[in-house]
Write a protein that binds this DNA or RNA. Structure first.
Lengths: 184, 184
DNA sequence: TAATTTACTTACTAGTATGTAAGTTTGCCA
DNA sequence: TGGCAAACTTACATACTAGTAAGTAAATTA
């Protein structure tokens, strides 16, 4: 995989998560790289190809994280999971799913399809962490693991969106409340 | 306030909440109304004027709801509040805040400003309902009222975004979990 | 060394977006 | 009945946008 292809993906993802999918153009990517917009089409013929690749890269990151921490405690795995959102928060970005979900019906079909896969995988990963954590006594909660995962993911996803607006440190408040809610 | 102005606002809001702010044009609004795109500019010279008005209309709706149920129980008020999201869910739309938050930095300054006001007001309204509900024994929760409000709003906001993707009835699962979490 | 591939650039098409300016129709009001 | 304002339309300017086609220099491979 070439350097430039990776740089394009990185800049594209940044723009997508800062401004939205329909708010960035190939020129916005090519300009900081000092190349022409047609060069982006060389790597990603259509914008949807870029969109799909950005999601794919994130999906791999989720899976890599999952296997890297496979033998760690459920709490460590949860914190690694949540850290993805913490990093986003520090950089004033929303998460990929949150960025794309709002514009869902304006997205090309292949992008929608890849997004669905990512959501399914992410939700499954968190459900798994929660289920194991409860089994070994690390976590306490009343909902089913999948329901609790839904609650946590929605909290984190929207916390990123909201705290950009309120300007307060609402993200951290929510983050702490989630961790507290898992203690008996 | 003219009929047409209201129709424009309604169609604009629908498009905004289905596809996103940067995904609809004045033509998308004028076509179903059988008028020309320049006619929309007559009512809303700039797109940001339309954006601001759409938010303003929603803000009023939140406040109207607030005063309409002023003398009702906290649970009834909470249910009225949550019903706004339930209606959105039925129509496959995200909420206004969720739609705009994702594209925040691509929005014109006046739209960003109005959005901030709406978020502040909405959060204050829910915080109030929760605080009163706890005071009179209707609700039980450990967090501060504002934190609990943040948790509930993020749950609802992102539930709308996520359930469009998963295709499951995850919205209803989350809705029930929220209500249950307020019982002692 | 010749042929081919990679990684682009140049130049362009076609379509769409926001927005403006000037003109037209319709109905009301003095 | 004359004038004026509301609610448009017509026509246009400007600026992007995604995407394509053809060409090119440099590196790689046969």
């Amino acid at each position: 995989m070439s350097d430039k292809r990776d740089e394009i993906l990185k800049i594209g993802e940044d723009l997508l998560r800062q401004n939205g999918y329909n708010a960035f153009s190939y020129n916005d990517i090519s300009r900081p790289l000092g190349i022409k917009n047609a060069a982006i089409h060389y790597y990603f013929p259509k914008k949807s190809d870029l969109g799909v690749s950005i999601i794919h890269r994130n999906l791999q990151a989720v899976n890599d994280l999952d296997s890297k921490y496979a033998s760690s405690s459920a709490l460590a795995r949860l914190k690694a999971f949540m850290n993805v959102y913490v990093e986003s928060y520090k950089n004033n970005k929303v998460c990929l799913v949150g960025a794309l979900a709002a514009e869902l019906y304006s997205l090309e079909e292949d992008v929608q399809r890849e997004l669905k896969i990512m959501v399914k995988d992410t939700l499954a990963a968190l459900t798994n962490i929660l289920a194991e954590g409860r089994k070994n006594g690390e976590f306490v909660f009343n909902e089913t693991p999948r329901t609790k995962a839904l609650l946590i993911i929605t909290n984190m996803l929207a916390a990123l969106q909201l705290s950009r607006i309120t300007g307060e440190d609402d993200f951290s408040i929510i983050e702490k409340a989630i961790l507290k809610s898992l203690k008996g």
